[in-house]
């Protein structure tokens, strides 16, 4: 059931990065090769420079979401509509402005991380 899951990180620490929009966690190489499953419009796989802009190594915690629609945690974290995969609980940076604009153009919601 469900749509295809995102790639699963191939390592557990180094090289992990999180997508600044959907918070999907993969390794740098994975992002570079196949982009972000939730945010294909970033076209990270086409433009490798984008990976650095769209993802961050600074994130807190990992959540593996098996069933986004049923998982309360996923809903709480607002990743309930994304594909199953490994996400982070929070990223510490905001998406660069130009990419935020891109999201807007694509009519995709982007919520910057909450600063406390």
């Amino acid at each position: 059931m469900g749509s295809a899951a995102a790639q699963i990180p191939t390592s557990f620490g180094h090289e992990l990065r999180a997508c600044l929009r959907c918070r999907l966690v993969k390794t740098y190489d994975q992002f570079r090769e196949s982009g972000c499953e939730n945010c294909p419009f970033f076209k990270m796989d086409e433009d490798n420079e984008r990976v650095v802009d769209c993802t961050t190594p600074n994130f807190t915690g990992i959540i593996s979401v098996m069933e986004p629609s049923r998982s309360w945690a996923a809903r709480w974290l607002r990743i309930g509509k994304f594909v199953p995969g490994c996400y982070t609980l929070a990223v510490s940076e905001a998406l660069p402005e130009d990419l935020q604009n891109l999201c807007e153009d694509e009519h995709v919601q982007y919520a910057p991380p909450k600063r406390v």
Binding site: I62, S64, V65, W72
Partner: peptide, 10 residues
């Protein structure tokens, strides 16, 4: 696997 998610906190 009937779990819906798994969380690791830093």
């Amino acid at each position: 696997l009937q779990i819906t998610s798994a969380v690791a906190l830093d």
